[in-house]
Write a protein that binds this DNA or RNA. Structure first.
Lengths: 75, 75
DNA sequence: TCTCCATGTCAAAAATTTCTTACATGACCC
DNA sequence: GGGTCATGTAAGAAATTTTTGACATGGAGA
């Protein structure tokens, strides 16, 4: 399997701040499945750049507001 | 194969602005192959979020400075 | 000319992300 | 209790990204 990517994200926090939007609702808006949203929030793998863009657009923020390089990981 | 992603990038321009860095040198710095850099620059597919981050870091810019959503593509 | 370097192409395999389907749990409300 | 919703897990298939290896071309320079 994939090892954990060195990327952190605030998807869950943004979702909750967005009027408690559910994982299912977010998944539908960005055009992926609920399982994909779960995996991304859990950091099991990082999304494609395209999914990342769609997530940022749903919340009206920039890519860097959603995803951050994990400085504690090896570069 | 994959259809063209709705994402544009300035990798080639950044590379040239970065003292004419070669595709091979960039590939080595971000830990992918030269073919991957070629494919990204040509827009054949968009990179993983992890590769995207590594590219931005090499050039010392933000993700959004390297990759832009193509507004002319269907969302 | 010959060599080196940068870019490009191609095809198949490998690795990673995403989908599909199914089932489980806890919270909440009737 | 029974129903719905949100979240979570799991396994295999499908799709996409990346690698590997090989070969081609054009430019620059010795």
């Amino acid at each position: 399997m994939a090892k954990r990517p060195p990327i952190l994200n605030r998807v869950k926090a943004l979702r909750e701040a967005h009027d408690g939007m559910s994982q299912a609702a977010l998944a539908k808006e960005i055009g992926v499945t609920r399982q994909t949203v779960i995996a991304i929030e859990q950091g099991r793998y990082s999304p494609s750049l395209e999914s990342a863009f769609r997530i940022a657009r749903v919340f009206g923020v920039s890519l860097d507001d959603v995803f951050q390089w994990d400085e504690t990981a090896e570069s």
